[in-house]
Each structure stands twice: as C-alpha cells, then as structure tokens.
Amino acid sequence: MSDRSILVVGGGIGGLATAIALRANAGLDVTVIEKQADVHSSVFGVGIIQPANAMRALDAIGCAEACMADGYGATEWGSMHDLDGGKLRDMTATRIEGAEYPAMNGITRPRLHEILTARALEVGVVIRYSTAFDTLEQHEDGVTVRFEDGGSERYDLVVGADGVRSKVREHVLGVELRPYYIGQSAFRLNMPRLPEIDRIILQPGPTGMAGFVPIGKDLAYFFFNAEYERDQRPKGDEIYPALKQHLEGFGWLTGQLRDEFLRPDADIVLRPEESLIARAPWHRGRVVLIGDSVHTVTPHLGQGAAQAIEDGIVLAEELRRHDDDHEPAFDAYTARRYERCKLVVDTCLAIAEWEKGQKPGFDNIAATNLVLDTLAQQY
C-alpha cells in the first residue's frame, strides 16, 4: 500500500500525529493541508497535559523524547487542596508496564506543534499551509478534493482531522451532528512555575475549579473552569475582571496567582467547553474521521490530544494490516477506538457536572483513577 496517497485535513496535534503514523509506520504517501498560515498561527491555547498514555503514543511516532526534554515530567498525576491549601486527596497515576514515562508531562502547545511538525517533515510528510478544501467528491477508486483556491487533486483516502468545527465531518456524518456546549468555559493563562506546582494541582472553589499544570522547568499554566450560559460568557475587556471575581476567597496558590500574576494586561485565554461522541461508523467510503471531529473531549482529564494521537496510530496500524482494503481497516479502527474514547468523553462530562454541583456524592478522584487505569492498557 506504500504507493497510496492520503490527504489529512487539519494540521493540529491530531492531524500531524496521524500523518506521521501513516507515513512512518504504514509507509503511505501523506499530505497535510492546514488553513492557517504556518505552524505557529495554527496553535490555540497555552499548555497541554500529556498523560502517560499520550507519551506512549508519542513514543510510537518518535516524538516522546523531545516532548520530555522540553516539557515537565511529573512523578505523580496530581493532588487536590482546599481553599487555604490544605491537602484533601492525592491523585496517583497508573504506570504503564515496561515503560518509564512520567505520570504526566506538561508542555507548551507551540513547542509540541514544533516537535510534531519537525518529525512530520523528517519522515516525508508534505505540509501545505494556507490551504483549505471546498468539496470532496468520492469515486469508487478515490476522492477528488477541490480546494478553495480553485485547484483540485485526487487522493486514495481522506482523513478528517479538522477538529471541533470539522468541515469533513458533514461528508461522513451529516451536517446535523455537532459538539454541544456543556455550560462551562475554561480560563487559562501562563505563569511562573512555583515549587509547589510539580504535578496537576486542583483547588475547588465556590464558583468553579481552579488548577495548575507544570509545562516547563520554569513555566506553568493556571486554569479555572467556570459555569456560564453560552451568551453570557465574558468577552474582551470583561475577561480579566470576571476571572478576578471568581478567584476572590481563594488562598494558597490560587490566591497568590490572583494577587501576583493576574493583571489587566495578562494574556488570558477563555474557551467554551464542548463535547461530542459520534456513533459508529466514523467513516463513509474513503473518508474517515479522527480526533475532535468525532470525540470532542472537555479538558477535565487532559485527554483530548492524547486520544487524537492514539487515533492516528491505530488508524495507521489497521491500514497497514488490511493493506489495500480500506473498509475493514476503517471498521477495525473504529471498533478499537469507540469504547475507549466514549469512556473519556463520558467521564469528563461527569466531572463537569460534579464541578457544577449537579452530581452530589460523585467521586471525581475515583473516576479519574478509573480512566487512567483503563488508558494504561494498550490502545
């Protein structure tokens, strides 16, 4: 199958990881198109959590070592503390048998994109920026892709890795299926890594969940999950005072963040949290979906990117295993991925409901540990 051509739509984390796996692990001819102008303009957000299962997947495409060198490897997953910093519970990570990955590696999103891009180019993936498709036309022996600039090309297969707002998704699952807003939005901003931030730190508060993630030797990011109606989320100059108000009453790390690092000119990212788990099949004909386009994961477990990377590796394995027959390869890919991704999506939603006070008696730590235990098993 090495002479087969594959177009990957989307140059984000999932798209690049999938392209690397398809090229390096399955020997396919792979082109990535990305509508943004370059690797940096395609990056959104601040930092990213890489659980042990993400490190295993990155290892499979030759990127784990670079991520660990430039990130922060935590010896434990995390801990939860009260408003004044008193420890409530530890969150321990399940180790992957036979491997020495950190419990959690934190890294900046720009650096992760640079690592994935460099590896993709190294193995022979073609990346075309400022490029978007207009239509996909399937044939018995291929897919004609017409681009927005008026050109067209033919590929054997197309992979939709174009995220939450996927345009490829409508060609597989129809226009009606879209992620939905869960009623929470996440504030995030970078800050210096204080000594206490050596793992994920959670501090529940009266109006939301505060937390810290180490993403480098001297760098961390702060997040706050807050409950908002979609049309009531703060915008522009409203974001800073809204976050500061949420953080009133916090002591310890969150209080220090509020008093020392939260300023009116701070670069604060505010994103809605959305969710989706699409029913199988995740393909139609020669077009298949991966990542957020079929399982949009809220950030409560740090698994969104990890699951997208796993998708790409499994897809490459099944295409290699089934050689020229894409239908059984796509079926096997979805069968291996569906329940695993659904567990992550469903557990994240349960944690969100607990954070909003709508799930009394729920044990978020036990739920997190169950997912980590399950994901420690091979994808």
Results as ranks from 00 to 15, higher is better:
118 A>V: 09
119 R>M: 07
121 L>G: 07
126 V>W: 01
126 V>C: 01
127 I>K: 03
129 Y>R: 11
129 Y>D: 04
130 S>Y: 05
133 F>E: 02
134 D>A: 03
144 T>C: 07
145 V>A: 14
145 V>C: 04
149 D>W: 02
150 G>F: 09
154 R>A: 09
155 Y>C: 07
155 Y>M: 01
159 V>Y: 07
171 H>K: 04
173 L>S: 01
178 R>M: 10
180 Y>N: 13
180 Y>G: 02
186 A>S: 12
186 A>L: 15
191 M>R: 08
192 P>T: 05
193 R>A: 01
194 L>N: 00
195 P>R: 03
195 P>L: 13
196 E>V: 00
197 I>L: 02
198 D>C: 00
199 R>W: 00
200 I>F: 14
200 I>W: 08
200 I>D: 07
202 L>E: 05
203 Q>H: 03
203 Q>V: 12
204 P>L: 08
204 P>D: 05
206 P>S: 14
208 G>I: 03
208 G>F: 04
213 V>L: 14
214 P>F: 13
216 G>R: 11
217 K>I: 00
218 D>T: 14
220 A>K: 14
221 Y>H: 15
223 F>Y: 13
225 N>G: 15
225 N>Y: 15
225 N>K: 05
227 E>P: 12
230 R>N: 11
231 D>Y: 02
232 Q>K: 10
237 D>Y: 06
237 D>G: 12
239 I>D: 09
244 K>T: 13
247 L>Q: 13
247 L>M: 13
249 G>M: 14
250 F>D: 00
252 W>L: 12
253 L>D: 06
258 R>F: 06
259 D>T: 14
260 E>F: 04
261 F>K: 04
261 F>R: 04
